[in-house]
């Protein structure tokens, strides 16, 4: 979620709440004979409030499971998740009197730190990454469709190359209109017939075949770029420039199309990377949060009972 001026109320509210907690904490810690701790009344209050905030933050996942239930707008839940989750960490620190403790409490504090930091990272990523994705990937597709789009690009490239082979071997029937027109104007006598302008060009055919099978096909076939030469835009441009010099002018439009296909493939690879970055932190945040809630509950029961 983008954190902008629309978060002003939540920001001020959280800040005021935190300030109040800190202001209360100072006399409380000084007046406590054994210092501030989770076992004192104030400590328990801090802990309970923080745990309630944590539970609320954790309920966002459950809220998302029932998106059409009118339980409040999802964005309100998200704002609550962000700000209450954010405030709960300092509250827990106040609850513990700035001690990490031992055993379960220590584990809890570390777990909470992981949740807190991963949450901050997630919030930062969600603030910046959507804009970056929008700007850098104009041909964005649905993430789940990336594999399918990749296959379509491959099919398109194969069909283009087949047409080009046909053209190079004088089989006009398989050439597309653009290629026929280009061929006719590229060297036939007065543009009388397309076929008369086409001659078998074994050398060009071999070059195209080698480039397609050696570079384009492997690049399109793999799901990520993995350091492929065509994954680098500058190097790819240079390679396609060179290919154009080796092929007759009537095939330049085909090379342009193949270059565009590779560009689109680079974009979907980049989109997949961005998507993983944008959502990858959840792999840490969500399990750690569940663990935190469960262990937090265990901690609360044990602390209150014993």
């Amino acid at each position: 979620m983008r954190i902008d001026e629309t978060h002003r109320k939540w920001f001020i509210g959280s800040l005021v709440g935190l300030a109040v907690a800190v202001v209360v904490y100072v006399p409380y810690s000084r007046s406590s004979p054994q210092g501030a701790g989770g076992g004192t009344t104030m400590g328990l209050i801090y802990g309970s409030v923080a745990f309630a905030f944590m539970i609320f933050a954790g309920l966002l996942g459950a809220r998302k499971k029932v998106p059409i239930w009118r339980l409040g707008r999802a964005q309100a839940w998200m704002r609550g998740h962000l700000w209450l989750g954010f405030v709960s960490f300092p509250l827990i620190v106040l609850h513990s009197g700035f001690h990490f403790g031992v055993g379960l409490t220590k584990a809890l504090m570390w777990l909470f730190a992981v949740v807190f930091v991963s949450g901050i990272v997630g919030a930062v990523l969600q603030h910046f990454m959507p804009r970056i994705t929008t700007q850098r990937i104009p041909l964005e597709t649905i993430y789940e469709q990336i594999g399918r789009v990749r296959l379509q690009l491959m099919e398109e490239a194969i069909s283009l190359v087949d047409e080009a082979y046909a053209l190079l071997h004088g089989d006009v029937s398989q050439a597309n209109e653009q290629q026929r027109a280009a061929s006719a104007s590229a060297g036939t006598m007065g543009g009388l017939t397309v076929a008369s302008g086409m001659q078998v060009d074994e050398e060009a055919s071999a070059e195209l075949k080698q480039f397609f099978q050696g570079e384009i096909q492997p690049f399109l076939a793999q799901s990520g770029s993995h350091g492929h030469v065509l994954a680098d835009r500058n190097r790819a441009q240079a390679m396609f420039r060179q290919l154009r010099t080796l092929l007759p002018p009537n095939l330049h439009s085909t090379v342009d199309d193949l270059e565009n296909i590779c560009e689109e493939k680079r974009e979907i690879d980049q989109q997949a990377r961005y998507h993983r970055v944008l959502h990858g932190w959840l792999l840490v945040h969500i399990p750690a949060s569940y663990a935190l809630l469960i262990l937090g509950a265990v901690h609360a029961v044990m602390a209150l009972r014993y």
Binding site: R2, I68, P130, R131, T133, Y143, L278
Partner: peptide, 18 residues
């Protein structure tokens, strides 16, 4: 708004649920 959308598809899920 693509500057805000995290591509989480909650909108599509909600529409399908509805």
């Amino acid at each position: 708004d693509l500057d805000r959308c995290t591509r989480c598809d909650q909108c599509v899920r909600a529409c399908a649920d509805a």
